[in-house]
Amino acid sequence: MVGVHGETMYIEIRNLTVKYKDITALENIDLRIEGPGLIQVLGPNGAGKSTLLRSIAGLVKPQKGCVCINGKDTTANPRLAGRSIGYVAQKPEVSKYSTITVREFLCYSYMIRRQRWPRPPCRKLLSSNELFINEDILDRKLTELSGGQLMKTYIARSLMSAPSILLLDEPLGPMDPASKLEFADIINMLSKERLVLVTSHDPIILLEYTDRILLLNKRLIALGSPSEVLREEILSKAYGRGFREVEYHIHLFDSHY
């Protein structure tokens, strides 16, 4: 429950129900997750994975229930949640006319959280290895980055507020196969000191680093270790017949993803 820097990191969700008009996205979710560690959030399309992450970040107002981060009620309160949480949305989109550079994007994220003067310099943070951003892309516009570089930049941005909890919504989606493997290592490194929740359609890439899997299909189906959750009788509750169990499975990271 306590990270290496001494911060507490736990998420407690009670009776959470979220609806978009008449469509139920999440229903009566009750769970408690503690960190540090890596939690993969799995479920079929429309299972409510993204909604769960957005609810934890306080970006969604639930119909009922509450979300507590490190003991504080942060339900629909992004400002309060943002003190502990870094969040990266699925497929971040940038206006094609945006002129903001990677350096500015990271620095602004840092500075808008520190309104008091004098603001500590951002330059030191940018040279930090933990941001895993190559120097040569710092002065590029966000619009000039590849999908993978853009996702890395957004994840680096989420670290600028030094969060104890990271919520990453399908971070591996826009990446090429080589970047996926590199990025799996980065997520593993980040989860050593933080509670990291990652939504995914493919659990294999991060499986060796995963502490627990949270299986959803609007309701909480299971929360446990990979060996407890990745079983036919459990997966069928979320996916129905939408999965195959293969012995001696080899996952290929082909370049035509």
Binding site: L59, P78, G82, A89, S109, I112, S158
Partner: peptide, 8 residues
């Protein structure tokens, strides 16, 4: 550039 983070 990032409305969600601006809210956070």
């Amino acid at each position: 550039s990032d409305i969600d983070d601006a809210r956070l």
